[in-house]
Amino acid sequence: MNIKKISSIETYPVRHEVLRKGKPIETCQFKGDNDEYTTHFGFFFEDKLVGIISIFKENNILFPESNQFQIRGMAVLEEFQGKGLGAELVKKAENHCLNFNTNLIWFNARENAVPFYEKLNYKIIGDSFLIPDVGIHFVMYKKIQ
């Protein structure tokens, strides 16, 4: 098992299966996927891509820190969930962000993913909100420096 950088297009099969099931494949393309500071990582098991995470240089006005990154599209195929792969992907993203002197990582977490992120010391800020056709989310964050 290993984690390596991948292209945005390589994330689509896992994004589609886990995050956009039943929706057109075009919904797997995120604004900023190919920006200069965006990075995508894939978790491979026996040469099969089984988990993904994307890191975007994006500030959220909820936080005063000037150097923020946003996690988007974190997903692990269902048959590989609960094995620690997601935590490894998040740690890889955090270490990557440290290379850019990042102050804070934030993201919009699905309601059912909140306990997973809380175990990784992420905290909720504000109230829940609805993303149409996706579900209830919370903004979560962690200061990493």
Rank of each mutant, 00 (worst) to 15 (best):
E58K: 15
N59L: 02
N59P: 02
N59D: 07
N60F: 08
I61M: 04
I61H: 10
L62T: 09
L62P: 09
L62G: 14
F63H: 09
P64C: 06
E65I: 03
S66C: 02
S66A: 00
Q68K: 11
Q68Y: 14
F69C: 13
Q70H: 06
I71L: 15
I71T: 10
I71F: 13
I71D: 11
R72F: 15
M74K: 11
M74W: 00
A75G: 10
V76M: 10
E78M: 02
E78P: 00
E78A: 06
E79G: 01
E79N: 08
F80M: 13
F80H: 15
F80P: 14
Q81S: 13
Q81I: 07
Q81P: 00
Q81K: 11
G82R: 10
G82C: 13
G82N: 08
G82A: 10
G84Y: 00
G84T: 05
G84N: 02
L85Y: 13
L85T: 01
L85S: 02
L85E: 07
G86C: 04
G86N: 06
G86Y: 09
A87H: 12
E88G: 00
E88T: 00
L89W: 04
L89D: 04
L89C: 07
V90T: 11
K91Q: 08
K92L: 00
K92G: 02
A93R: 02
A93Q: 07
A93D: 04
A93N: 06
A93F: 00
E94Q: 08
E94R: 08
E94C: 08
H96Q: 11
H96A: 04
H96G: 04
H96M: 04
C97S: 14
C97T: 05
L98C: 10
L98G: 03
L98Q: 02
N99K: 15
F100H: 15
N101C: 10
N101K: 13
N101M: 13
N103D: 15
L104V: 09
L104G: 13
I105G: 12
I105K: 03
I105T: 04
F107S: 01
F107R: 04
F107L: 03
N108W: 04
N108E: 15
N108C: 15
N108K: 14
A109P: 08
A109R: 08
R110L: 11
E111K: 11
N112T: 01
A113M: 09
A113W: 00
A113R: 12
